[in-house]
């Protein structure tokens, strides 16, 4: 469990002055990342909002080593960096006590979609990396196009709410469970609204020798369409309504990290965002009912997982 006061005293690895939008959820993640650990970290990022807004030459927001090469290959790129580290260390060209950690960032476009193969390869090969997906539920960098992380019913520029089709008609892919299918020791879903859950999961990922995967819900003001001072509240509501459960699989133990005392109806989250506005027209009420059904079914699935992979009895 992290202590916010202690964390605030730790040196920064990611500096302010970047050009991400006001209210963007992403910078919370790197800010915490460098503070939760004493390891030196090398970061690779996929092309996306995060990369373009933090590395506009001749400026950089990265106080520590950072590399970007392309969109679909953050996992392969960090694999190469980590492989070089292991090689040079084995050859004695890097001192044995110099312990480095390797982190890759990708948005949901760079991770769920175009980068899925590269991620799968890296997880299967077992590199000592933490892959962090900042999931804002669409291709935000190119102007809010649908991804396989876009929620059912959401309007994007390529799944607009039209006269006959009410937004995106496919469900979000369960990427964290896809990552788990690689038999990795740690995979988790978290959200920037829950800093302690996020910090703890980042720490667990970094402390592990081997691949870890963390999917972080990160709100997007222009993509979700809400006032920029409401980012944390909107994200928190995704958790409170059960749309975005916080869970982890940690060395074979499955935990739901937060259970709302009373799950709020998913409509309470939807109504905060312009991307779901069309669903509140009477003719589209069935879509909200379908989203609620999906949320309830997913919780049932998570409960089964928690029962199937309990913590060992002491």
């Amino acid at each position: 469990m992290a202590n916010l006061k202690e964390l605030s005293k730790k040196p920064d690895g990611f500096s302010p002055g970047h050009r991400l939008c006001a209210g963007c959820g992403i910078p919370i993640i790197p800010k915490l990342l460098y503070k939760v650990t004493d390891y030196d970290i090398v970061v690779a990022s996929a092309t996306g909002c995060f990369e373009v807004a933090t590395t506009i030459y001749p400026y950089t927001s990265w106080l520590k080593p950072f590399v970007h090469s392309a969109f679909e290959n953050a996992a392969a790129t960090i694999s190469g960096v980590e492989a070089m580290y292991q090689s040079l260390k084995k050859q004695g060209k890097i001192p044995a006590n110099r312990k480095l950690k390797f982190v890759a960032f990708g948005g949901d476009g760079g991770t769920y979609d175009i980068g899925l193969q590269s991620l799968s390869g890296a997880l299967e090969r077992g590199h000592d990396i933490v892959y962090i997906c900042y999931d804002n539920g669409a291709y935000m960098n190119t102007g809010i196009q649908r991804s396989s992380a876009t929620p059912y019913g959401a309007a994007t520029t390529t799944s607009p709410a039209g006269k006959v089709i009410p937004g995106k008609m496919q469900r979000r892919k369960d990427l964290t469970n896809i990552a788990l299918a690689h038999h990795i020791d740690y995979a988790a879903q978290t959200a920037v609204s829950h800093w302690n859950d996020l910090a703890t999961k980042l720490q667990k990922g970094l402390d592990l020798d081997g691949p870890a995967f963390i999917c972080v819900m990160s709100p997007c003001v222009p993509g979700w369409m809400y006032p920029s001072d409401q980012s944390i509240e909107v994200t928190r509501m995704a958790v409170e309504t059960g749309y975005w459960p916080l869970f982890e699989m940690d060395h074979g133990v499955f935990r739901i990290n937060y259970k709302p005392k009373q799950k709020l109806p998913v409509a309470d989250w939807l109504k905060l965002q312009g991307r779901f506005r069309h669903l509140f027209r009477p003719e589209n009420s069935y879509v909200i009912e379908e989203i609620q059904r999906q949320v309830d079914a997913y919780w049932e699935y998570l409960d089964h997982m928690a029962q199937a992979f309990p913590a060992p009895q002491k």
Partner: peptide
Amino acid sequence: NTNLVTVESEHSAMSACIGAAAAGG
């Protein structure tokens, strides 16, 4: 002494080469 990375595609092969070369070797 080589660390051989048996990637899942040529795209990842060159991507990993880029990461490794950028790492400094």
